[in-house]
Design a binder for these strands. Structure first.
Lengths: 346, 346
DNA sequence: CTGCATCACTTAACCGGTAAAGAGCATACT
DNA sequence: AGTATGCTCTTTACCGGTTAAGTGATGCAG
């Protein structure tokens, strides 16, 4: 084998073997006109035989594309590890990228400030063709920076003010509404909402929907904010349940929060679901393996990842922009929710 | 601003601004001799002002490095999402890579066969400088392929037969030994081990250590294999606990398995830890938030990721090869283990 | 005053692809 | 016959860096 640098096969090797020029090889392997079918077949056969793959760096240098997209996660590692959402989302993103031979470049950072620095670097280095931005915040500085750079991006989790970047999100409101109506139908009048980070747009959407539903149904409804960490979830649950008139049903904004809340409730002597009903979010197996299994808001996160990735590829190729609103999740009822037991019980 | 393609600043722009040649700019920005200090300072100042970053593709084409490393995960997405190990590991890997401006390219695949195809492509495309290989198997075909390709790699999870690839792993055996001795000291005589995938090297190590400890201590000790999925964990637990003389203590090979096992045990009417003690592995918050919190084998997974990444960078740069054995984990005791209640109780 | 380093830079080739422009030849048309 | 057209392939420039080799100018020793 005529192998060169690092054992890699280049189109030059193929050209020599086929007795044609580099240009002809390039035309042949890219399926473009300019070579006869005979020559093309011969070249393709040689390429396969030698196990040729296009050198990505070389291609990126002339073509504008690097065939890689990026995802930056700015949540604490410990939270990420426990939040099944991200791995499922990534797996959806991956499967879409893989079928287009696009690489996923992942980076974990500590805060949005670092995240912006990563975008600047990635753009300057031409490391990625585009990025997926998660956990959209109100007045998100990342949006301005991405627009300024001109780095193609799709924002996951809420429409962007002014529509300056294409976005994709779930209808969070109507499923919150469904969950609260379900709890009300079970007889609960004091409900609570343990939310995620308050400045995230999807948190706002959920909180607003929660407040609206509570108002419309004439319930009492507290809201407690967390930073998605287990500790803050434990604190929030403890605070709610130690109030003089604790809620009889709690909606949690993530699996991790819900499972933590369940543990705290049980530890405080509350029986779930007899004393307090619990509803989780992002129904993962964790919700199902705990005891009792959790009623939860289910959505197809992998499909969400697929859709986000596809949208980004469209944006990168200039095929489309605009926003995509995915169908809302569903409420899956399990053992952690039950009709409210009249207060004589306690 | 003299900006060109896609708004990116190139050394040509800097050269024009500074009134020098491209070569001089390259020398200046790479801290190599060949330019005066004055000129260097001027060039660096201009580069900073224009926000220049080296185009990675261009650099990769001449230098041999692409400054990216890869990680392929060949477990089902649903399992991955729930297994905190991987995200924690990735976060460790990431933090080490990030401090060297190395990108992490992640790919999820269905099986080792696809994984090999990814390595071939990555190597041919020159997408990565090296890879981290997880879940080492006996007679792992990936090892042969990586050796054949000459793609730098570090194997995570057990030494490679023949030492053909550098590896990094934990001492799994001695911590298993510690856990079983602890259970024996609590009075347990019938113990069980719910393992992961049997062909993984680290599973073998654990199983051997378990069998040795059981033999040495004169215990009865069943081993049941799973594929790490929650379903198979549930099945394994059900099988063990429905035997005529069920074990009074079970060691699970992962958090997910342990939590699932806990749920099944409780569902079957076993009290944990009174009827059966449970020990988990990879002590994540999940183990801590369930009820009772799980006794578990703890190890610093993030540090493991850091060490693996650092070892890979050494290998890529030809600085080192060889194997690294990390310190073993520790047993953290919590509420899921207790002294054995004499069998009169049941 | 010559000879020879040394310094500070420029020139040019190269990495491995892409793609526009050109060249040689056969066929088709007027 | 002359020329236009089309096809197939080659030549060449280019992407944005790196780097070996080359060039003037300066300094300094003999």
């Amino acid at each position: 084998m005529a192998e060169r640098r690092g054992g890699r096969v280049t189109i030059k090797d193929i050209a020599e073997r086929a007795g044609v020029s580099k240009g002809a090889v390039s035309y042949a392997l890219n399926g473009r006109p300019g070579v006869s079918d005979d020559t093309r077949d011969r070249i393709v056969a040689i390429a396969n035989e030698l196990g040729w793959y296009p050198n990505r760096a070389a291609r990126a240098l002339s073509a504008a594309r690097v065939d890689a997209c990026g995802l930056v996660l700015a949540r604490p590692a410990r939270t990420l590890a426990l939040e099944p959402f991200f791995m499922e989302f990534i797996s959806g993103v991956e499967s879409e990228f893989a079928s287009h031979s696009i690489a996923l470049t992942l980076q974990l950072v500590r805060d949005p400030h670092e995240e912006i620095a990563v975008y600047r670097r990635w753009f300057g280095e031409h490391r990625v063709d585009g990025v997926l931005v998660v956990d959209l915040r109100l007045d998100d500085p990342r949006v301005d920076e991405l627009v300024r750079l001109g780095l193609p991006a799709v924002v996951v989790g809420g429409p962007v003010e002014g529509g300056v970047l294409p976005a994709i999100w779930h209808d969070e409101g109507s499923v919150v509404n469904e969950a609260i109506r379900y709890l009300a139908a079970l007889g609960h009048t004091r409900v609570a909402h343990v939310t995620g980070v308050d400045t995230f747009v999807h948190t706002r959407q959920r909180v607003e929907a929660f407040r609206r539903a509570v108002r419309e149904l004439g319930l009492e409804g507290d809201t407690v904010e967390t930073d998605y960490s287990a500790q803050s979830g434990a604190r929030a649950t403890r605070k709610l349940l130690s109030s003089p008139s604790p809620p009889t049903a709690i909606l949690f904004d993530s699996d991790l929060l819900a499972v933590t809340g369940l543990g705290i409730a049980q530890q405080m002597g509350f029986s779930v679901p007899d004393d307090v009903s619990i509803v989780g979010w992002d129904d993962s197996l964790i919700s199902q393996v705990v005891h009792p299994p959790l009623t939860a808001i289910t959505r197809d996160i992998t499909a969400f990842g697929v859709a986000a990735a596809r949208h980004l590829l469209d944006v990168v190729e200039g095929r489309a922009a605009g926003d995509v609103e995915m169908t809302r999740g569903e409420l899956t009822t399990r053992g952690s929710t039950a009709p409210r037991v009249p207060s004589i019980a306690r």
